[in-house]
Amino acid sequence: MGEIFLKAFEALWQVLVAGVVLGAGLPALFALGIRLQGSGRTLATDGASYTTPVTTGGRAGSFVLFGVCVLAVLFGIFLIVAGGFGLKLFG
């Protein structure tokens, strides 16, 4: 009986980690990429906002973060399409 609970808690832990990583982590990376795209904006002392071109570092960082998000989505699609084969590869 105790072994059943242990396996249930192990599965619950895996679902919780996946939910936190995919449910909060990927949107946070995407939001950070959007924030880096706006890294060229400056605010003057009179309250006016002037937009300058995005810095090279901001552009490169945002492309990397967007790439990670796209790869995660494509990997998820792969696992869904591959069905049992995809699950056998990782578990």
Rank of each mutant, 00 (worst) to 15 (best):
T42E: 14
L6M: 06
V73C: 01
A72V: 07
F75N: 08
L32C: 01
A11I: 05
L74V: 04
L32M: 13
T52C: 04
P27L: 00
V81S: 01
G19L: 05
W13M: 11
F66Y: 10
T42M: 04
S39C: 14
R59Y: 12
G38W: 09
G67D: 06
L6R: 15
R41P: 02
L12Q: 00
T52I: 03
V21G: 13
S62Y: 02
F9V: 04
C69N: 05
F63T: 02
M1S: 12
L87Y: 09
A44W: 03
G19E: 05
L26N: 10
T55F: 09
A72E: 03
G38D: 14
G83P: 01
V70F: 00
L79R: 11
F90C: 00
L29A: 00
V73F: 13
F5M: 08
R35E: 15
I34G: 14
G33M: 09
E10A: 12
A24S: 02
G47P: 15
V54G: 11
G91C: 00
L6D: 15
F90I: 06
G67N: 06
I77S: 11
L65C: 06
T55R: 04
T55A: 06
G38R: 13
F63D: 07
I34A: 15
V81C: 05
E10M: 08
G33A: 12
L65P: 14
A8E: 10
W13H: 07
F75C: 12
T51E: 14
L36G: 00
G19H: 11
Y50D: 03
Y50M: 10
L89E: 02
G33Q: 06
E10R: 06
F85M: 10
P27R: 05
L29P: 12
L29N: 07
T55H: 09
L65N: 00
V81K: 14
G86F: 05
M1D: 01
G40P: 07
F75K: 06
L36F: 15
F78R: 06
G2Q: 00
V21H: 05
G57E: 04
Q14L: 15
